[in-house]
Design a protein around this nucleic acid. Sequence first.
RNA 1: GGGCGGGUAGCUCAGUUGGGAGAGCGCCACGUUUACACCGUGGAUGUCACAGGUUCAAGUCCUGUUCCGCCUACCA
Length: 887
Amino acid sequence: MDKEALSKSYSPHVVEEKWYKYWLEGGFFEAEDKSEKKPFSIVIPPPNVTGMLHMGHALNNTLQDIIIRYKRMQGYNSLWMPGTDHAGIATQNVVEQALAKEGISRHDIGREKFIEDVWKWREKYGGIILNQLQKLGCSCDWKRERFTMDEGLSRAVREIFVKLYNDGLIYQGDYIVNWCPRCHTAISDLEVEYEEEKGGLWYIQYPYAEGEGGIVVATTRPETMLGDTAVAVNPNDERYEDVIGKKVILPLMNKEIEIIADDYVSKEFGTGAVKITPASDPNDFAIAERHGLEIIVVIDGNGVINENGGVYRGQDRDTCRENVVEDLKKGGYLIREEPYLHNVGRCYRCKTIVEPAVSKQWFVKVKPLAKEASAAVVKGDTRIIPPIWEGTYFEWMENIRDWCISRQIWWGHRIPVWYCDECGKIIAAVEEPQVCPDCGGGSLKQDEDVLDTWFSSALWPFSTLGWPEKTEALETFYPTSLLVTGFDIIFFWVARMMMMGLYIMKKVPFNDVYLHALVRDEEGDKMSKSKGNSIDPLKMIDRYGADAFRFTLAAFTAQGRDVKMSEARIEGYQHFVNKIWNTARFAFMNLDDYTEKGEKVKDSEYSLADRWIKDALNRTIREVSSSLDEYRFNDASGVIYQFVWHELCDWYLEMIKPVLYGNNSPERRLAAQETLYDVFEKTIKLLHPFIPFVTEEIWQKMKVAEGTSVMVSEFPAESETYEDGDAFHRVSVLKDIIGNIRNIRGVMNIPPPKKLRVLLSVPDRELRSILDDGREYILNLANLQELSVEGTVEEPRGVATGIVGSIKIYVFLEGMVDIVAERARLEKEMKKLSKDLVNVSKKLNNRDFMEKASEVVIRKEEAKFEELKEKNRNLEEALKKLQEIEE
RNA sequence: GGGCGGGUAGCUCAGUUGGGAGAGCGCCACGUUUACACCGUGGAUGUCACAGGUUCAAGUCCUGUUCCGCCUACCA
C-alpha cells in the first residue's frame, strides 16, 4: 500500500496523461496476431481525417473502449483496430479552402501537385482526431493504425473493383445522378438529404402547334423547361385523350415537342399534364428512356445554363428561374403561380441544392450482394442490436438501388480503369497496364474519376487486417466480433460492409453490430456547429476528467434511445469519481498496516458485514457482466454506481469503522482489512472499463503487482464462495431497523448527535437472534447509547414507536416526546398502510383471484396480508398509548 | 404516402416473461460524527398522454385517438 497521502479530491489532469503514456509504453493495447487466447476484435468506425472529436465520436468510442477493455480483462486476445478515413470530398474541400486563401485554385497547380498538398495536409493535421481519442482513454492498438489511402488498402480497393467489374457487378453508363454543383461531383442517393421547403408551383401553358389553345403543365422548377422534350399525360385521362400525339410549342424556346402518354403521370396532381425534362429529373429521365425522347442538357456542372439554353446561357439556375418566369408572364404563358411546399434535396456535405443531371458514371449492381447480406442477418450470422434496426436493414436491402461510385474529384482512389486511345478498349486492372491487351497500343489513359469514399470503407473490416494478403491477423480476427456504430450509418456503412465482406471473404464482417443512438443537447436537438448547441468533448474532459465524461455517456446510453447530454450531468458523475477516490483514501488510511500476503484469516473472524459485502459484490459482478454481455451500458453503469455508493460506502464502510478504528479485536480487524482490500480491488477492476484513469491510479497505489496494469488484470468473476444468502437476509433486517430509527430521529427532529436509548420488542425468535447478534451495528449506525432486544414487551411510556413487520421499536424520548409530531407520524404511516391493506384484502377476497392466480402469487399476497395486518395492529396500539399519555 | 420510436416525479430517464410505481439530478429539513459538503441522515412528489378492450390482475398485452421525434418515398 502506498503511504503517501491522497488529496481530498481527485484531480484528473496529471493522472490521465501519466497513465495513458504508461499504457502505451507498456504495450498493453497491443493484440497478438497469433495467440493461444481466444480472439476478440473490433474495428473502429474510421473518423474523417479532417475530423475533430465531437460528442458522437465520444459516445461511439467510449462504448467500444468499455467493451474492449472488458474483454481484454476477461483474457481475450483483444484487438481494437484504429484508423481514419480519407473522406474524399470533405478533405478536398478543406485543402481547397486553404489554397483559396492564397488565391490559388486546384486547377492552377494541377492534379498531381494538388494531391501532394493533400498528403502534406494529412501529415500535419490528420492525426488530430486520433490524439483526441487518446484523451478519451481509448485503448486502440495504435501500432496497427490504418488509413483508407494506405498502399495496402488502396490495393484492396483496386482488387475488388476489378473483381466486381469482371463479375459484371460494376458497369459504366450515362444515367441521371445526383449532382452537387458546388462540390462539382456526382453523389449517391444516400448523400442527398431531403427537406420540405417553401417553393412555388407554376402553371404554364404550352400552346398547341396547330389550332387554338394549349396544354397547361405544373412545375416546381420552371427554369428546366428550356430542356423539355415532351409533355406527358396519363393514358387513361379522358381530358387529354384527344391530344395525345399532338405537338405543342415549347414557350421561350419556340420549338415543337410532343404530348405523350405514360402511366407515371397522376391524373389527380396539378393539371394532370407534366413537362418532361429528361436531363434534369430522374422521373423524366425514366420516361425518356421508355419513349426514346431526346435528352437535352441545359444546366451544366456548375448549375449554370449552357449553350442549349438559348438567351439564358450563362445565368445560374436561380437567376434563370426568375427570368424565365418573368418572360413567361410577358408572353402570356404563365397561367397561375401558387406557393407550394415540396421536398428539396440538398448535398449532405455542403447543403447546396442537388441538381439531378445526366452524366457518365460508374455503378455497382448491388441487388445480388444485398440478397446475401440480408440472408446473413436472417440466419443470425450477424446479430443486429438492438433488434429494432433489423427491419430498417431488411427494408433497405430489399429496395436497394444501384450505387453510383464515381466521384469527379481528385482526392481518393482513382478508378482502376484505362482507356486505349487507339482502339477504345476499356481495361480494368489492379496494376497500371503498359499496353492495350487488344491492339497492343501504348497510349492508355486512366479514368479521371475517383471512387466514393464509402467504397473503401466498405472493405475496412478485412482491408485493415491485411487483405488481399493472407495475414495471420486476418486469420485470427476476421470475422470481427463486434461493430459499434451509430444507426445513422446503417446504409452508408454497415450494409455495405456486409455486402463486401460476404462477397470477398464469404463470411460476415462482424458477428454483432451494436447500434447506438445520437447525442443530442438537453433540449433533444441534434447538436450542430451551426446551431451552436454542441458541447465540446475535449472541454468536458478538461473540466471534469475523461472518467466522469465517459461514465456519463455510459450511464445515459439506454438501448434505442437518444442520449441527451448536458454539462450538469457530467458534473454529477464527477462527484461519483470523487466518491471512488475518497473510498480509496479511506481504504489506504486503514490498510496502512495490512499486507495481502499476511497470515490467513480464519473464516470465523469474518464479520457479518464482511460476509454481506462479499455477497453484494458477487451480485454486482454478475449483473455488470451480464449487462455488458448484452450491451446494456446504462444497466451496467447503474448497477455498479449503486453498489459503490449505496452498498460499499453507505453501509459496509460504516459497519466496519468501529472494527478498523478500535484495537480490541486484532483478528476481526485483520478480517475487515482483508475484506476491504479484496472487495475494493475487485470493485476497481469492475469499474476499470468505464473509468480507466482513476482506477489505474488507485490500483497502482494499492501495489497489487509491479510493472503491470489494472487494464490487463483479471476481470472479477462471480464466485460461489462469496454467495451468502444468510448475510444478505440478516443485513436487510438490520437495515430496516436502523432505517426506522433514523426515520424517527429525522421526522421527530431529534438532533443527529443526540445518542438515543432504544428497546426492541421482537416476538420472533430468529429475528431476535439476528438483532442481538447485530446489536453493535445498530448501536453505531443508528447512534444509540443503549439497545435492549426483548421478546414481547409492554410499550413503555414516553417513547416514539416504529413498526417493522412484527418488530416494535421503542425510542425513548425522555420527556421530549412531541405528541403532535408523533401522532402525525404514526397516522401518516397508518394511512399508507391501510391503502395497501385494502388492496391486498380485495385480492384475497376475490374468488377469481384465488382460483386463477398462481400458487406463488397467492402465497405472496397472503404473507403480505399477515404482515400488513400485524403492522396495522401495532400502529393502532401505539396510537392508543399516545392517547393515554395525552389524557 | 409508408415505416419506426417515444409521451412514467419539477428535469433527464430506468422499468427484461403481466403480479407490491423506481433511479439520478433538483427541492425541503437537520447536521462539519477522524474518506468525501464533489458529504451524511431524513423528508416531500406521480390521472404511468387519452379512450376503450383482454385478464382474477395492465406502466407492461390488444385496438383506436392525440402530441412529439426520426427514418424512408420518383407525384410534377
